[in-house]
């Protein structure tokens, strides 16, 4: 039993890039293409790690610190996320705050690294990133507060193997989290990872100048972040089965993650990206859902 958290941590580290592969394959399926291999991101990472690097003359050490701090922060987040009904490797009362704030640290350094290049495109992306994050933060914490009150626990590991699966409150909170998840991971309808126009990007444009191992770290961190926030949603929605070996629950959790990836792929295939000025509306909707969830729990 005690080995479960470590196995889950390892699975997260190993399988996070897979999610992006699944999302891309789903999108390719909807577009009638064959699409890149599911393991494409692994090949990309391996290749990037073998390369040299090009740094802009404008940049300083802050630019190089961005990817490493980002990876370190998201690893801490991964260690705080419970998976498949088992507790997280690290858990204590209030770890949900630390989760939200280490992701904030990651964002801070990604943004300053982007500003370090002095490029107006990257400034633009950074500006959008902090705007959306600032508006997503209250929705995230409110949804977590609702779930925490429902579970009567201050720790993610006490909240996530949801005691009453699919109760309306948790479904609402999870709905809010899905919107936050799409926003934080720069997916459609907030940002289009496939766009090729710098003017319209958010996350992609911030890392435009990173290359080689730096870019590898960034891509891997982004995949881990997708995994972390995805595990939050899956943990809230997918029930765990009692009385079976933990491996069974792990498999259920993994199936949930794959399903989430497919859903994201479907969403990206069937919806268009919203105009930038409408993004706050979506985030306000997430906040409203979370508030509704909280009021229902409070009652």
């Amino acid at each position: 039993m005690t080995s479960a958290p470590l196995v889950h941590l390892f699975l997260g580290l190993l399988l996070a890039p897979l999610l992006l592969g699944v999302i891309n394959r789903t999108k390719a399926f909807f577009a009638g293409r064959r699409g890149p291999p599911v393991l494409q991101l692994y090949w990309d990472l391996a290749k990037l790690l073998r390369k040299g690097a090009v740094y802009s003359q404008t940049t300083t050490w802050v630019f190089q610190a961005g990817p490493v701090v980002g990876l370190a922060a998201v690893l801490a987040a991964l260690a705080l996320i419970p998976f498949g009904g088992a507790a997280a490797p690290l858990h204590f009362n209030g770890d949900l705050l630390l989760l939200a704030y280490v992701l904030g640290l990651m964002r801070f350094f990604t943004v300053v690294a982007a500003l370090d290049t002095g490029s107006s495109f990257e400034g633009m992306g950074a500006s959008r990133e902090v705007q959306f994050a600032a508006l997503a933060e209250p929705a995230l914490l409110l949804a977590l507060a609702a779930a925490a009150r429902k579970a009567g626990s201050l720790s993610l590991s006490g909240i996530l193997p949801a005691a009453v699966p699919l109760s309306p409150e948790l479904a609402l909170a999870a709905g809010a989290l899905v919107i936050v998840f799409l926003c934080e991971n720069s997916r459609v309808p907030f940002d289009d990872p496939n766009t090729h126009l710098e003017l319209t990007m958010i996350h992609e444009v911030m890392v435009l100048d990173h290359s080689g191992p730096d870019l590898a770290l960034i891509l891997y961190s982004a995949a881990l972040k997708l995994w972390v926030l995805g595990a939050l949603i899956v943990g809230m929605l997918v029930p765990t089965v009692a009385g079976v070996p933990w491996v069974a629950n792990t498999v259920i959790g993994l199936a949930g993650m794959l399903l989430l990836a497919v859903v994201v792929g479907v969403v990206e295939s069937v919806t268009a990206r919203v105009r930038l000025v409408r993004v706050p509306h979506l985030l306000a909707a997430a906040g409203a859902l979370a508030a509704l969830a909280f009021v229902l729990v409070l009652r």
Partner: peptide, 19 residues
Amino acid sequence: GGLAVACFTKAFGIVFLGE
């Protein structure tokens, strides 16, 4: 918290980074 991050990435980024 979110707005403070916005504000201080701005203050540090614009004053100390770039050209």
